[in-house]
Design a binder for these strands. Structure first.
Lengths: 214, 214
DNA sequence: ACGCCCTGACTGACCAGTCAATCTAGTCCG
DNA sequence: CGGACTAGATTGACTGGTCAGTCAGGGCGT
């Protein structure tokens, strides 16, 4: 694309991306103008279009960059010989740390992409799905090994696991949950402990979940 | 508001709301035009503004109507003398049934409101929060009764529970999960079983969740 | 005749994307 | 060294299209 010729020279492309994160997080993708991004980055309007073909492409770039890092981590963890609980803990930890490191970016990714069923979520659905599938695979393997009980669809369990984490981030994003070092750590632990605890194959409650009126 | 004078006379206001659900679900709130709603409803453009002050108000109405029904159910369940597991099962069941009954409406509510941190989510945050708080209260009570272990923040557990359900709906919305009668039933069971299983105070694994570098 | 429901053409504002012009730095030659 | 040339970086005024919301008027029941 374009390496800045000399150190110290500001990489305008990067500056635009970072400004976009702040603007998208503050105003939302649909509500902000391209000029807001340019202003925030301190560059001319047209420069945004020098580096990105469209407003959409800016968000695409932000999402894909980050998501690929996550996929890489998941694959790496998946390749190792570890108990599921630790694999899932590594994933939960990565996501929470991502938020702690750059809350705005994670907010944008979750709000504007991961959960945007009509726009970017749909466009990137295959990329998003990859993560779900990998997690589902881990759970399936744990079931095969007898570590998890076999009576839940791995795909469903994977969604529940990922959904629980994402909702914690949502709680932070909406400022419904406290955001202290301590709570970040406890959140990681909670999700893994709860989901794994629920999936593990300890003395099965014979209570056939007969329940449920409509 | 306006009761249609005679039976058989179509309630145009209702028709507009229902059309809006279909249009919002199909195209998304930001991408659709008010004329799309009017066309879908088979009414004139201006009539939308006769019944609703703005495009926003249409979505507000859809969300509030449904969310209040849910809050009512949660409160009713909460008032009864039931084991947590059954209370949570009733909530999970209600949400899944809501989706089964009107997938488009639930899609709109989740995608455009519940998770829209910059627009409607923010506007309705207090209403949304009420649900989380009620669920959190149930969990806190279960902890006080010794049914759930006491070492997780009720608020965090409530978010994890709700997030797991919403992510299952998201899976259906994105068509990542199968949508058959059977799967709907299993989904309800899975969420409750997993989360409750994880939160219950059975023989605590002494494995102090020491883990996780980051 | 009054008060509604209902209509749809119109307006005013807004904004993504274009483009012609200017700037900057590197390179090559005399 | 200086001037000519090139290519990419940078600028911001402008265009074309879109769309939320308005409004003046028409229809119909009572």
């Amino acid at each position: 694309m374009s390496a800045s010729p000399r150190a110290g020279a500001p990489d305008k492309r990067r500056m635009i991306l970072q400004a976009a994160v702040r603007v998208f997080a503050r105003q939302g993708f649909h509500t902000c103008r391209v000029s807001d991004i340019a202003d925030e980055a301190g560059v001319a309007y047209g420069l945004v279009y020098h580096y990105f073909a469209s407003k959409d492409k800016v968000l695409d770039t932000l999402f894909l960059e980050r998501w690929h890092v996550m996929l890489e981590l998941i694959r790496e963890v998946d390749g190792q010989e570890l108990p599921v609980r630790e694999k899932l803990a590594a994933i939960a930890s990565f996501i929470v740390e991502s938020y702690r490191h750059d809350p705005d970016l994670m907010k944008v990714i979750i709000v504007e992409v991961t959960r945007a069923a009509n726009s970017f979520g749909d466009k990137h659905i295959d990329t998003i799905r990859e993560a779900y599938d990998l997690i589902g695979g881990m759970i399936a393997k744990a079931q095969a090994d007898g570590v998890f009980k076999a009576d839940v669809e791995p795909r469903f369990a994977a969604m529940a696991f990922y959904g629980a984490i994402e909702q914690l981030l949502t709680g932070w994003i909406f400022e419904l949950l406290p955001q202290t070092e301590d709570y970040f750590e406890r959140a990681k632990w909670l999700v893994v402990e709860t989901i794994c605890g629920g999936l593990e194959a300890h003395a099965m409650t014979a209570a056939g979940a007969a329940g449920g009126g409509a």
